[in-house]
Amino acid sequence: MTEKTFMAGFGGQGIISMGQLWVYCGMKEGLEVSFFPFYGAEKRGGIARASVIVSSKEIASPLVTTPDSAIVMNMDSLPLCEENLKPNGIMLVNSSLVKTSPKRKDVKVVNIPCNEIAESIGDVKFANMVMFGALAKATGALKLDKLEEVLVSFFGEGKSKFVPLNMQAIEEGKKAVAV
């Protein structure tokens, strides 16, 4: 199994932490992982992208050029993700912010209203975690069977109070993917 994911959005949407948590969970599930970020020169509000791979074998290039799955967190990221996604790949779209439909017909599009779901939990900041859950469900690449334990070690003792809400967001994200 190798799942190459391309994540794209703007700075502040939590693209980087979503990618890091994804590979952290992968590593804890015994997989090989790599995470390669790309930011704009701006410290806030610029583009934020990540090449993320989890695999049961040695990972070749950490640079994801033909992703198996793509995460589109904002409007600007749609054309890029559409261009690169592998035929029959999965495109997860944050439909709260992306109002245009992808043109490609050879990919599986999953619309998740991440911002709305996150707001219903209490804070739009959880939008990335909603998407994280959707990615796990849609790709099946990670089991997330020891999620609570993994989240506690990822966030560290100081921030463990955020674990329950993050878990809730991930669960909501999973549910939002129609089976």
Binding site: V23, V33, S34, F35, F36, P37, P62
Partner: peptide, 9 residues
């Protein structure tokens, strides 16, 4: 820069 910036286990 790739080896330096990327994260792996």
């Amino acid at each position: 820069g790739m080896i330096g910036q990327m994260m792996e286990g």
